[in-house]
Write a protein that binds this DNA or RNA. Structure first.
Lengths: 362, 362
DNA sequence: GCGCTTGCTGAATGCGTTTGCACAACGAAC
DNA sequence: GTTCGTTGTGCAAACGCATTCAGCAAGCGC
């Protein structure tokens, strides 16, 4: 038998935590008003139910003085809203997604939301997936960042049944969710135009990662070259992991082989920068002997030597669209996903592209 | 007056959300057991109170079939634990911190926690700070990433009164929180040793960002050079923002001025990579005419042209220590912060350093 | 046979909010 | 002087789960 003679409070153990939590009830007692009134003042619900200005004043003053903040969990339980958005990222280590996370976080904050980071193991590890779903339960909505593997997308659809969902860079096969993406077709077309106009004939495509967007860009590459009268452009396609070093190794062998291309169009800046390194290792000068074009325009693209010609994604605009759409869905969950929203990329010409060496020009 | 004749349920409006939420009560009813039993099975609390294996079995089966997940908010309200860790980052756009976020997220996940991303505006914008604190209220503990400005740290200390707090890369003046950091003194010493041993005499220090760690590294630079008999090493110190382009511009003017150094030791890889670019712009060859050393060893350091000699931070180890310490504090909130934990860096020699040009050598 | 432990379960309470409803006080309108 | 609004305020019921307490069988020693 446990004696609890000291306190008259119920014997329930304080849920092991940071001291006795200050509640609205306490505040009310100190001021001689009810907890409800405190809540009304603090939740801003006063629009509907009036509170005497003087009472409000007193409450606000005490609250400020005590540095009190309402318990978010209790609030969330009551309102079924947490102010948290889930961000499920394919690969956080990817500089591009890192940038996206930063931008999305900022944008979310502008709307009063915070961001919970999720991570989908490349193998869609079941255990991870589960705990993931758990954490995501906190969220009011979720943004899928990058092309998740099919299986991941599957369980996600299950786990987040009925949860507002927006996909960014989902690449092609649009899933059952609202989708925002850059116009891959257009972006690659710009790159190809640029390269072809410079006079290149031997053009390779370096695909970093076998993602949906990558495939879309690859297809766009083939199409754009065909449109310019090239035959068998698919012969120039090379696939590698979307990592600096993987791309470097891949391009190194490519450059050492015979029939070296005079231009490489990469599906991502990461791959392109890897290619840049490969060229340096092999002793091929960029852009004099080899032109390289990236895709994404990550900040780094401006700093490489030479700086990288690349297809710019309007990151800010993409983030805004995604968040905006998600908030719509949160406000009105029954809404249909609707058509994918496309934003237009543009080509940024820097130092990594030039006319091909004489011997190779048209 | 509002008629609600249709339903016999209480009139309280469904908190605008995804259909009628499945609860433990529902599950219990379907199975003819009480909600408490369902909770006991699902919360794993069965260790204390036994549940008949057959009952447990039935419950688990139905739960799996229905794909039911307990409401995290309700659970959090009851247990005062959310399974969320806050990550407050000085600058998410910084590649180094991006990496750290990835690593910490992974480590947190390994312990069953998810990560909420926070952002401290560079100006410690009051409004942002406030809503920030709000979101952080969800968290069981918070990790401070990088040297927050003093004011930010102040309000944070206030807002998170009594919340378990661990600081990473807090640079020098240890605040009132548990701290994990790399041994800046040692790291810079390694870099200086390397450069001096190569024969350099004119050595500059490029500080990216006026952070605590930066200042610590700067001081270490001065000390290390003094120890090697250099006089007035502080004359070689240059400060710039910790961004690629800012560093580039800064170093560009440095290199164009007279008395150009033969080696630059940077306080971060970002600054070092900016310097690399500057050298290329000015036409100074690295490492033949100019050696450059970074600090951090971000993945990119391996891919620059030339690849970057830099001081490696054991990111994995740092993350593990930080998370481990935080979990300790969460388990036992009354624990004292204790001494800062230091991890040892090591020098990674790559292609950006070499002996100085003849005319400059000893 | 009687108590007493043991194993399992349900009812009930609390976590800290929000919010529907009731109600008191007070003018204004009849 | 009743009858209505209005304006503030308090009471109490959720929100969905964890957990305590009490209860009820069965099992066991005496």
């Amino acid at each position: 038998m446990r004696l609890n003679s000291e306190s008259t409070k119920p014997a329930r153990a304080q849920p092991a935590g940071r001291g006795t939590r200050l509640t609205m009830k306490h505040i009310g007692e100190m001021l001689g008003v009810s907890q409800s009134t405190v809540s009304r003042v603090l939740s801003g619900a006063s629009m509907n139910v009036p509170v005497a200005p003087e009472t409000r004043e007193r409450i606000l003053r005490l609250v400020a003085e005590l540095g009190y903040t309402p318990n978010p969990m209790a609030r969330a339980l009551s309102t079924a809203r947490t102010g948290l958005l889930g961000l499920i990222v394919r690969d956080i280590n990817d500089p591009f997604f890192g940038l996206a996370v930063a931008e999305l976080t900022a944008e979310a904050r502008r709307h009063g939301y915070s961001v919970v980071l999720g991570h989908v193991g490349s193998r869609a590890d079941e255990a991870i997936a589960l705990s993931q779903a758990l954490a995501m339960g906190h969220c009011d909505g979720v943004i899928l960042l990058g092309d998740l593997r099919d299986q991941s997308r599957l369980w996600l659809a299950g786990a987040a049944r009925g949860m507002p969902l927006v996909g960014l860079w989902q690449g092609g096969r649009a899933p059952q969710v609202a989708v925002v993406n850059v116009d891959n077709q257009k972006g690659v077309a710009l790159a190809v135009e640029h390269i072809v106009d410079l006079g290149h004939r031997r053009i390779a495509f370096l695909q970093g990662g076998r993602t949906g967007d990558g495939l879309e860009r690859q297809a766009a590459f083939v199409n754009a070259l065909r449109a310019r009268g090239f035959t068998r452009p698919e012969q120039g396609i090379h696939v590698t992991a979307n990592e600096f070093l993987a791309a470097t190794r891949s391009v190194e062998t490519l450059l050492r082989a015979g029939g070296r291309p005079t231009a490489i169009i990469a599906s991502t800046d990461v791959a392109a920068i890897g290619a840049l390194k490969a060229a340096s290792l092999v002793g091929v000068r960029v852009p004099e002997q080899l032109s390289i074009v990236g895709f994404d325009d990550i900040p780094l693209a401006e700093v490489t030597v030479p700086s990288l010609t690349t297809v710019h994604q309007p990151m800010r605009q993409l983030s805004q669209l995604a968040i905006e759409r998600l908030l719509q869905l949160i406000a009105n969950p029954s809404e249909q996903p609707g058509k994918p929203q496309m934003v237009q990329p543009k080509l940024v010409v820097r130092g990594s592209t030039a006319a091909p060496p004489r011997s190779h020009s048209r």
